[in-house]
Write a protein that binds this DNA or RNA. Structure first.
Lengths: 199, 199
DNA sequence: CTTGCATGTCACCGCATGGTGATGTAAATT
DNA sequence: AATTTACATCACCATGCGGTGACATGCAAG
Protein backbone atom coordinates (compact mmCIF):
# COMPACT_ATOMS: atom_id res chain seq x y z
CA UNK A 1 0.00 0.00 0.00
CA UNK A 2 1.51 3.24 -1.18
CA UNK A 3 0.65 6.36 0.75
CA UNK A 4 0.97 9.53 -1.26
CA UNK A 5 -1.82 11.99 -1.46
CA UNK A 6 -0.58 13.85 -4.53
CA UNK A 7 0.04 10.71 -6.53
CA UNK A 8 -3.41 9.44 -5.63
CA UNK A 9 -5.03 12.71 -6.69
CA UNK A 10 -3.18 12.54 -9.96
CA UNK A 11 -4.31 9.00 -10.58
CA UNK A 12 -7.90 10.10 -9.99
CA UNK A 13 -7.64 12.99 -12.43
CA UNK A 14 -6.09 10.74 -15.04
CA UNK A 15 -8.89 8.25 -14.54
CA UNK A 16 -11.43 10.99 -15.27
CA UNK A 17 -9.79 11.69 -18.59
CA UNK A 18 -9.44 8.05 -19.47
CA UNK A 19 -13.12 7.35 -18.85
CA UNK A 20 -14.22 10.36 -20.89
CA UNK A 21 -12.05 9.18 -23.75
CA UNK A 22 -13.16 5.59 -23.73
CA UNK A 23 -16.78 5.76 -22.62
CA UNK A 24 -17.84 9.38 -22.80
CA UNK A 25 -18.86 11.90 -20.21
CA UNK A 26 -22.11 10.13 -19.42
CA UNK A 27 -20.28 7.11 -18.09
CA UNK A 28 -18.42 9.26 -15.62
CA UNK A 29 -19.29 8.49 -12.02
CA UNK A 30 -17.73 8.05 -8.62
CA UNK A 31 -17.61 4.28 -8.90
CA UNK A 32 -16.19 4.25 -12.42
CA UNK A 33 -13.49 6.77 -11.56
CA UNK A 34 -12.49 4.95 -8.40
CA UNK A 35 -12.31 1.64 -10.20
CA UNK A 36 -10.32 3.03 -13.12
CA UNK A 37 -7.90 4.83 -10.83
CA UNK A 38 -7.43 1.73 -8.72
CA UNK A 39 -8.34 3.78 -5.71
CA UNK A 40 -11.08 3.65 -3.15
CA UNK A 41 -13.93 6.01 -3.94
CA UNK A 42 -13.92 7.42 -0.47
CA UNK A 43 -10.62 9.08 -1.33
CA UNK A 44 -12.34 11.05 -4.06
CA UNK A 45 -14.69 12.55 -1.52
CA UNK A 46 -11.80 13.25 0.82
CA UNK A 47 -9.50 14.93 -1.67
CA UNK A 48 -12.03 16.68 -3.88
CA UNK A 49 -14.93 17.08 -1.46
CA UNK A 50 -17.50 16.17 -4.05
CA UNK A 51 -17.73 14.71 -7.48
CA UNK A 52 -18.61 18.14 -8.88
CA UNK A 53 -15.43 19.61 -7.49
CA UNK A 54 -13.43 16.79 -8.99
CA UNK A 55 -14.88 17.64 -12.40
CA UNK A 56 -14.16 21.32 -11.98
CA UNK A 57 -10.61 20.58 -10.90
CA UNK A 58 -10.19 18.35 -13.93
CA UNK A 59 -11.53 20.94 -16.36
CA UNK A 60 -9.42 23.67 -14.81
CA UNK A 61 -6.33 21.52 -15.19
CA UNK A 62 -7.02 21.10 -18.88
CA UNK A 63 -7.51 24.77 -19.61
CA UNK A 64 -9.73 24.17 -22.62
CA UNK A 65 -11.06 27.65 -23.04
CA UNK A 66 -8.16 29.98 -22.69
CA UNK A 67 -6.34 28.97 -25.84
CA UNK A 68 -7.65 32.04 -27.57
CA UNK A 69 -6.59 35.25 -25.96
CA UNK A 70 -9.04 37.86 -27.09
CA UNK A 71 -7.65 40.58 -24.90
CA UNK A 72 -7.67 44.27 -25.60
CA UNK A 73 -4.21 44.14 -27.13
CA UNK A 74 -5.45 41.91 -29.91
CA UNK A 75 -8.44 44.11 -30.52
CA UNK A 76 -6.30 47.22 -30.78
CA UNK A 77 -3.92 45.59 -33.22
CA UNK A 78 -6.74 45.52 -35.75
CA UNK A 79 -6.14 48.43 -38.10
CA UNK A 80 -8.14 47.58 -41.18
CA UNK A 81 -11.11 45.46 -42.09
CA UNK A 82 -8.65 43.19 -43.87
CA UNK A 83 -6.82 42.69 -40.57
CA UNK A 84 -10.10 41.75 -38.93
CA UNK A 85 -11.02 39.31 -41.68
CA UNK A 86 -7.69 37.53 -41.50
CA UNK A 87 -7.76 37.36 -37.73
CA UNK A 88 -11.28 35.95 -37.62
CA UNK A 89 -10.51 33.37 -40.28
CA UNK A 90 -7.34 32.35 -38.47
CA UNK A 91 -9.14 31.96 -35.15
CA UNK A 92 -11.96 29.93 -36.64
CA UNK A 93 -9.60 27.59 -38.46
CA UNK A 94 -7.47 27.10 -35.38
CA UNK A 95 -10.51 26.37 -33.30
CA UNK A 96 -11.83 23.84 -35.79
CA UNK A 97 -8.65 21.81 -35.73
CA UNK A 98 -8.29 22.21 -31.97
CA UNK A 99 -11.80 20.97 -31.22
CA UNK A 100 -11.75 18.28 -33.87
CA UNK A 101 -8.60 16.83 -32.35
CA UNK A 102 -9.67 17.14 -28.76
CA UNK A 103 -12.11 14.36 -27.98
CA UNK A 104 -12.31 15.24 -24.32
CA UNK A 105 -13.39 18.76 -25.17
CA UNK A 106 -16.01 17.40 -27.55
CA UNK A 107 -17.43 15.26 -24.81
CA UNK A 108 -17.58 18.26 -22.51
CA UNK A 109 -19.32 20.38 -25.13
CA UNK A 110 -21.86 17.62 -25.63
CA UNK A 111 -22.39 17.16 -21.94
CA UNK A 112 -22.84 20.89 -21.51
CA UNK A 113 -25.74 20.84 -23.95
CA UNK A 114 -27.50 18.26 -21.85
CA UNK A 115 -26.95 19.46 -18.34
CA UNK A 116 -27.30 22.53 -16.21
CA UNK A 117 -25.58 22.36 -12.86
CA UNK A 118 -22.70 23.77 -10.85
CA UNK A 119 -20.10 22.37 -13.21
CA UNK A 120 -21.71 23.63 -16.40
CA UNK A 121 -22.22 27.01 -14.75
CA UNK A 122 -18.50 27.09 -14.05
CA UNK A 123 -17.68 26.20 -17.64
CA UNK A 124 -20.07 28.88 -18.87
CA UNK A 125 -18.12 31.47 -16.90
CA UNK A 126 -14.84 30.27 -18.38
CA UNK A 127 -16.31 30.64 -21.83
CA UNK A 128 -17.59 34.12 -21.18
CA UNK A 129 -14.12 35.43 -20.69
CA UNK A 130 -12.13 33.22 -23.02
CA UNK A 131 -14.05 31.12 -25.43
CA UNK A 132 -14.90 31.27 -29.06
CA UNK A 133 -18.45 32.06 -28.04
CA UNK A 134 -17.45 35.64 -27.47
CA UNK A 135 -15.88 36.39 -30.78
CA UNK A 136 -18.07 39.48 -30.91
CA UNK A 137 -15.43 40.89 -28.59
CA UNK A 138 -13.40 41.45 -31.73
CA UNK A 139 -16.09 43.47 -33.41
CA UNK A 140 -16.67 45.83 -30.53
CA UNK A 141 -14.62 48.75 -31.66
CA UNK A 142 -14.37 48.05 -35.30
CA UNK A 143 -17.44 47.17 -37.24
CA UNK A 144 -20.17 46.14 -34.91
CA UNK A 145 -23.42 45.48 -36.67
CA UNK A 146 -26.08 42.89 -36.08
CA UNK A 147 -25.44 41.12 -39.37
CA UNK A 148 -21.86 40.45 -38.41
CA UNK A 149 -22.94 39.33 -34.95
CA UNK A 150 -25.60 36.99 -36.30
CA UNK A 151 -23.36 35.56 -38.98
CA UNK A 152 -20.56 34.84 -36.54
CA UNK A 153 -23.00 33.14 -34.19
CA UNK A 154 -24.40 30.93 -36.91
CA UNK A 155 -20.96 30.02 -38.20
CA UNK A 156 -19.58 29.22 -34.79
CA UNK A 157 -22.71 27.34 -33.81
CA UNK A 158 -22.49 25.49 -37.10
CA UNK A 159 -18.90 24.52 -36.41
CA UNK A 160 -19.83 23.17 -33.01
CA UNK A 161 -22.79 21.25 -34.36
CA UNK A 162 -20.95 19.70 -37.28
CA UNK A 163 -18.05 18.60 -35.12
CA UNK A 164 -20.34 17.07 -32.54
CA UNK A 165 -22.60 15.50 -35.10
CA UNK A 166 -19.60 13.81 -36.66
CA UNK A 167 -19.32 11.68 -33.54
CA UNK A 168 -22.39 9.68 -34.47
CA UNK A 169 -22.95 10.25 -38.17
CA UNK A 170 -20.76 10.44 -41.25
CA UNK A 171 -22.61 12.69 -43.65
CA UNK A 172 -24.47 15.95 -43.11
CA UNK A 173 -26.15 17.65 -46.04
CA UNK A 174 -23.99 15.63 -48.39
CA UNK A 175 -20.72 16.62 -46.72
CA UNK A 176 -18.53 13.98 -45.12
CA UNK A 177 -18.06 15.62 -41.75
CA UNK A 178 -15.74 12.91 -40.51
CA UNK A 179 -13.06 13.48 -43.13
CA UNK A 180 -10.44 16.16 -43.56
CA UNK A 181 -11.58 16.83 -47.09
CA UNK A 182 -15.07 17.53 -45.80
CA UNK A 183 -13.64 20.00 -43.33
CA UNK A 184 -11.46 21.62 -45.93
CA UNK A 185 -14.65 22.36 -47.83
CA UNK A 186 -16.13 23.88 -44.70
CA UNK A 187 -13.03 25.97 -44.10
CA UNK A 188 -13.08 27.31 -47.65
CA UNK A 189 -16.72 28.16 -47.10
CA UNK A 190 -15.91 30.00 -43.92
CA UNK A 191 -13.21 32.03 -45.64
CA UNK A 192 -15.63 33.18 -48.29
CA UNK A 193 -18.39 33.82 -45.81
CA UNK A 194 -16.21 35.95 -43.57
CA UNK A 195 -15.10 37.88 -46.60
CA UNK A 196 -18.71 38.57 -47.57
CA UNK A 197 -19.88 39.32 -44.08
CA UNK A 198 -17.28 41.82 -42.92
CA UNK A 199 -18.06 44.82 -45.07
CA UNK B 1 -58.74 -3.90 -13.95
CA UNK B 2 -59.43 -2.67 -17.45
CA UNK B 3 -58.38 -4.90 -20.29
CA UNK B 4 -57.82 -3.12 -23.53
CA UNK B 5 -54.65 -3.54 -25.47
CA UNK B 6 -55.00 -0.48 -27.66
CA UNK B 7 -55.78 1.83 -24.75
CA UNK B 8 -52.81 0.46 -22.86
CA UNK B 9 -50.50 0.94 -25.81
CA UNK B 10 -51.73 4.49 -26.12
CA UNK B 11 -51.12 5.15 -22.44
CA UNK B 12 -47.58 3.88 -22.85
CA UNK B 13 -46.89 6.11 -25.84
CA UNK B 14 -48.29 9.11 -24.00
CA UNK B 15 -46.10 8.30 -21.03
CA UNK B 16 -43.03 8.38 -23.28
CA UNK B 17 -43.90 11.89 -24.41
CA UNK B 18 -44.69 13.07 -20.93
CA UNK B 19 -41.37 11.86 -19.54
CA UNK B 20 -39.41 13.46 -22.38
CA UNK B 21 -41.20 16.74 -21.73
CA UNK B 22 -40.74 16.78 -18.00
CA UNK B 23 -37.40 15.05 -17.46
CA UNK B 24 -35.74 14.80 -20.85
CA UNK B 25 -34.79 11.90 -23.02
CA UNK B 26 -32.11 10.68 -20.64
CA UNK B 27 -34.66 9.90 -17.96
CA UNK B 28 -36.50 7.62 -20.31
CA UNK B 29 -36.44 3.99 -19.27
CA UNK B 30 -38.65 0.96 -19.01
CA UNK B 31 -39.36 1.50 -15.35
CA UNK B 32 -40.11 5.20 -15.69
CA UNK B 33 -42.45 4.67 -18.62
CA UNK B 34 -44.31 1.86 -16.90
CA UNK B 35 -44.73 3.89 -13.76
CA UNK B 36 -45.86 7.02 -15.57
CA UNK B 37 -48.33 5.07 -17.72
CA UNK B 38 -49.68 3.27 -14.67
CA UNK B 39 -48.98 0.01 -16.40
CA UNK B 40 -46.84 -2.97 -15.68
CA UNK B 41 -43.55 -2.85 -17.49
CA UNK B 42 -43.94 -6.35 -18.76
CA UNK B 43 -46.71 -5.08 -21.04
CA UNK B 44 -44.23 -2.81 -22.75
CA UNK B 45 -42.14 -5.80 -23.70
CA UNK B 46 -45.23 -7.67 -24.81
CA UNK B 47 -46.72 -4.95 -26.97
CA UNK B 48 -43.59 -3.33 -28.31
CA UNK B 49 -41.15 -6.25 -28.09
CA UNK B 50 -38.35 -4.09 -26.82
CA UNK B 51 -37.74 -0.64 -25.47
CA UNK B 52 -36.04 0.34 -28.73
CA UNK B 53 -39.11 -0.58 -30.71
CA UNK B 54 -41.26 1.45 -28.36
CA UNK B 55 -39.10 4.48 -29.07
CA UNK B 56 -39.24 3.93 -32.80
CA UNK B 57 -43.01 3.54 -32.68
CA UNK B 58 -43.24 6.74 -30.69
CA UNK B 59 -41.05 8.70 -33.09
CA UNK B 60 -42.91 7.34 -36.09
CA UNK B 61 -46.19 8.41 -34.53
CA UNK B 62 -44.93 11.95 -34.17
CA UNK B 63 -43.71 12.31 -37.71
CA UNK B 64 -41.10 14.91 -36.86
CA UNK B 65 -39.15 14.79 -40.07
CA UNK B 66 -41.64 14.76 -42.87
CA UNK B 67 -42.98 18.25 -42.35
CA UNK B 68 -40.86 19.49 -45.21
CA UNK B 69 -41.65 17.85 -48.46
CA UNK B 70 -38.61 18.29 -50.63
CA UNK B 71 -39.91 16.17 -53.44
CA UNK B 72 -39.11 16.53 -57.11
CA UNK B 73 -42.19 18.64 -57.66
CA UNK B 74 -40.83 21.35 -55.40
CA UNK B 75 -37.45 21.25 -57.05
CA UNK B 76 -38.96 21.59 -60.49
CA UNK B 77 -41.08 24.54 -59.43
CA UNK B 78 -37.89 26.56 -58.97
CA UNK B 79 -37.55 28.72 -62.08
CA UNK B 80 -35.18 31.46 -61.02
CA UNK B 81 -32.49 32.04 -58.45
CA UNK B 82 -34.94 34.38 -56.75
CA UNK B 83 -37.39 31.49 -56.41
CA UNK B 84 -34.68 29.40 -54.81
CA UNK B 85 -33.71 32.15 -52.38
CA UNK B 86 -37.25 32.69 -51.23
CA UNK B 87 -37.91 28.98 -50.87
CA UNK B 88 -34.77 28.38 -48.85
CA UNK B 89 -35.48 31.33 -46.58
CA UNK B 90 -39.05 30.20 -46.07
CA UNK B 91 -37.99 26.66 -45.20
CA UNK B 92 -35.34 27.80 -42.76
CA UNK B 93 -37.70 30.18 -40.98
CA UNK B 94 -40.42 27.57 -40.74
CA UNK B 95 -37.96 25.06 -39.35
CA UNK B 96 -36.68 27.49 -36.77
CA UNK B 97 -40.11 28.13 -35.34
CA UNK B 98 -41.08 24.50 -35.62
CA UNK B 99 -38.06 23.23 -33.74
CA UNK B 100 -38.09 26.05 -31.21
CA UNK B 101 -41.68 25.22 -30.30
CA UNK B 102 -41.22 21.48 -30.23
CA UNK B 103 -39.50 20.51 -27.04
CA UNK B 104 -39.81 16.82 -27.68
CA UNK B 105 -38.01 17.18 -30.97
CA UNK B 106 -35.27 19.18 -29.27
CA UNK B 107 -34.76 16.41 -26.78
CA UNK B 108 -34.52 13.89 -29.58
CA UNK B 109 -31.99 16.00 -31.47
CA UNK B 110 -29.93 16.27 -28.33
CA UNK B 111 -30.17 12.59 -27.60
CA UNK B 112 -29.17 11.81 -31.17
CA UNK B 113 -25.93 13.71 -30.69
CA UNK B 114 -25.05 11.54 -27.72
CA UNK B 115 -26.01 8.09 -28.85
CA UNK B 116 -25.53 5.71 -31.70
CA UNK B 117 -27.84 2.72 -31.71
CA UNK B 118 -30.74 1.14 -33.55
CA UNK B 119 -33.06 4.01 -32.77
CA UNK B 120 -30.72 6.78 -33.86
CA UNK B 121 -29.95 4.80 -37.00
CA UNK B 122 -33.67 4.72 -37.71
CA UNK B 123 -33.96 8.46 -37.16
CA UNK B 124 -30.97 9.05 -39.42
CA UNK B 125 -32.79 7.25 -42.22
CA UNK B 126 -35.88 9.36 -41.70
CA UNK B 127 -33.76 12.46 -41.97
CA UNK B 128 -32.07 11.32 -45.13
CA UNK B 129 -35.31 11.34 -47.03
CA UNK B 130 -37.16 14.16 -45.33
CA UNK B 131 -35.22 16.36 -43.03
CA UNK B 132 -33.70 19.74 -43.18
CA UNK B 133 -30.32 18.05 -43.26
CA UNK B 134 -30.77 17.38 -46.92
CA UNK B 135 -31.55 20.84 -48.11
CA UNK B 136 -28.87 20.33 -50.71
CA UNK B 137 -31.59 18.39 -52.49
CA UNK B 138 -32.88 21.78 -53.55
CA UNK B 139 -29.62 22.80 -55.15
CA UNK B 140 -29.22 19.67 -57.21
CA UNK B 141 -30.46 20.88 -60.52
CA UNK B 142 -30.12 24.57 -60.05
CA UNK B 143 -26.95 25.98 -58.73
CA UNK B 144 -24.92 23.31 -57.10
CA UNK B 145 -21.57 24.54 -55.92
CA UNK B 146 -19.55 23.75 -52.86
CA UNK B 147 -19.85 27.22 -51.38
CA UNK B 148 -23.62 26.96 -51.32
CA UNK B 149 -23.41 23.47 -49.87
CA UNK B 150 -20.99 24.52 -47.15
CA UNK B 151 -22.90 27.65 -46.29
CA UNK B 152 -26.19 25.81 -45.99
CA UNK B 153 -24.56 23.21 -43.77
CA UNK B 154 -23.09 25.81 -41.46
CA UNK B 155 -26.33 27.76 -41.27
CA UNK B 156 -28.45 24.71 -40.56
CA UNK B 157 -25.93 23.36 -38.08
CA UNK B 158 -25.86 26.79 -36.48
CA UNK B 159 -29.62 26.81 -36.16
CA UNK B 160 -29.57 23.41 -34.49
CA UNK B 161 -26.80 24.39 -32.12
CA UNK B 162 -28.30 27.70 -31.08
CA UNK B 163 -31.70 26.17 -30.44
CA UNK B 164 -30.22 23.35 -28.40
CA UNK B 165 -27.84 25.62 -26.55
CA UNK B 166 -30.75 27.79 -25.51
CA UNK B 167 -31.95 24.95 -23.33
CA UNK B 168 -29.17 25.49 -20.84
CA UNK B 169 -27.86 28.98 -21.48
CA UNK B 170 -29.37 32.38 -22.23
CA UNK B 171 -26.75 34.24 -24.20
CA UNK B 172 -24.50 33.13 -27.03
CA UNK B 173 -22.03 35.57 -28.55
CA UNK B 174 -24.03 38.43 -27.08
CA UNK B 175 -27.32 37.27 -28.56
CA UNK B 176 -30.19 36.28 -26.31
CA UNK B 177 -30.99 32.90 -27.85
CA UNK B 178 -33.93 32.31 -25.55
CA UNK B 179 -35.95 35.30 -26.72
CA UNK B 180 -37.95 35.94 -29.87
CA UNK B 181 -36.06 39.16 -30.48
CA UNK B 182 -32.80 37.25 -30.47
CA UNK B 183 -34.20 34.86 -33.03
CA UNK B 184 -35.55 37.66 -35.16
CA UNK B 185 -31.98 38.93 -35.38
CA UNK B 186 -30.87 35.48 -36.45
CA UNK B 187 -33.62 35.24 -39.04
CA UNK B 188 -32.68 38.62 -40.52
CA UNK B 189 -29.10 37.38 -40.65
CA UNK B 190 -30.17 34.23 -42.46
CA UNK B 191 -32.11 36.23 -45.03
CA UNK B 192 -29.08 38.33 -45.84
CA UNK B 193 -26.75 35.35 -45.84
CA UNK B 194 -28.91 33.36 -48.24
CA UNK B 195 -29.10 36.39 -50.47
CA UNK B 196 -25.32 36.65 -50.53
CA UNK B 197 -24.69 32.98 -50.90
CA UNK B 198 -26.99 32.07 -53.77
CA UNK B 199 -25.37 33.76 -56.68
C1' DC C 1 -70.98 -23.52 -19.16
C1' DT C 2 -66.48 -24.48 -19.85
C1' DT C 3 -62.22 -24.17 -22.14
C1' DG C 4 -58.61 -21.49 -24.07
C1' DC C 5 -56.36 -17.34 -24.95
C1' DA C 6 -55.32 -12.48 -24.57
C1' DT C 7 -54.53 -9.14 -21.15
C1' DG C 8 -52.85 -7.55 -16.81
C1' DT C 9 -50.24 -8.32 -11.97
C1' DC C 10 -46.61 -9.58 -8.92
C1' DA C 11 -42.33 -11.03 -7.07
C1' DC C 12 -37.90 -11.60 -7.90
C1' DC C 13 -33.13 -11.62 -10.20
C1' DG C 14 -28.33 -9.65 -10.88
C1' DC C 15 -26.09 -5.58 -11.35
C1' DA C 16 -24.69 -0.76 -10.83
C1' DT C 17 -25.28 3.55 -8.73
C1' DG C 18 -24.05 7.43 -5.03
C1' DG C 19 -22.93 7.66 -0.35
C1' DT C 20 -21.07 6.60 4.62
C1' DG C 21 -19.11 4.69 9.12
C1' DA C 22 -15.84 1.73 11.09
C1' DT C 23 -11.39 -0.09 10.65
C1' DG C 24 -6.62 -0.92 9.20
C1' DT C 25 -1.92 0.76 8.27
C1' DA C 26 2.13 3.47 7.15
C1' DA C 27 4.73 7.36 8.34
C1' DA C 28 5.82 11.47 11.17
C1' DT C 29 6.17 13.51 15.96
C1' DT C 30 7.30 13.23 20.52
C1' DA D 1 9.95 3.04 21.30
C1' DA D 2 5.22 4.85 21.93
C1' DT D 3 1.72 7.80 20.27
C1' DT D 4 -0.51 10.62 17.13
C1' DT D 5 -1.94 11.75 12.56
C1' DA D 6 -2.68 11.38 7.78
C1' DC D 7 -3.64 8.17 4.28
C1' DA D 8 -6.00 4.10 2.45
C1' DT D 9 -9.34 -0.02 2.74
C1' DC D 10 -13.47 -2.48 3.50
C1' DA D 11 -18.15 -3.62 4.26
C1' DC D 12 -22.46 -2.09 3.93
C1' DC D 13 -26.71 0.81 2.84
C1' DA D 14 -30.83 2.22 0.09
C1' DT D 15 -32.17 3.03 -4.48
C1' DG D 16 -32.74 2.32 -9.24
C1' DC D 17 -31.95 -0.10 -13.41
C1' DG D 18 -33.29 -3.70 -17.32
C1' DG D 19 -35.19 -8.07 -17.60
C1' DT D 20 -38.03 -12.52 -16.67
C1' DG D 21 -41.02 -16.44 -15.08
C1' DA D 22 -45.13 -17.63 -12.60
C1' DC D 23 -49.59 -16.37 -11.70
C1' DA D 24 -54.41 -13.92 -11.82
C1' DT D 25 -58.19 -12.21 -14.42
C1' DG D 26 -61.51 -11.20 -17.96
C1' DC D 27 -63.45 -12.21 -22.52
C1' DA D 28 -64.95 -14.83 -26.42
C1' DA D 29 -65.35 -18.94 -29.03
C1' DG D 30 -66.54 -23.74 -28.73
Amino acid sequence: MVKNKEVTKQKILEAVESIILTDGFDSLGINAVAKSAGVDKVLIYRYFNSFDELLITFIKSKDFFSNIKLDDGVVKSIKSKEDLKQLVIKILKEQISYIRKNKVLQEILLWELNNKNKVTDFIAKERETNGLDNINFLFKEFNNNEFLLGSASLIIGGIYYLILRAKTVDVFNNIDITSDTGWELIERTIEKLIDLVIL
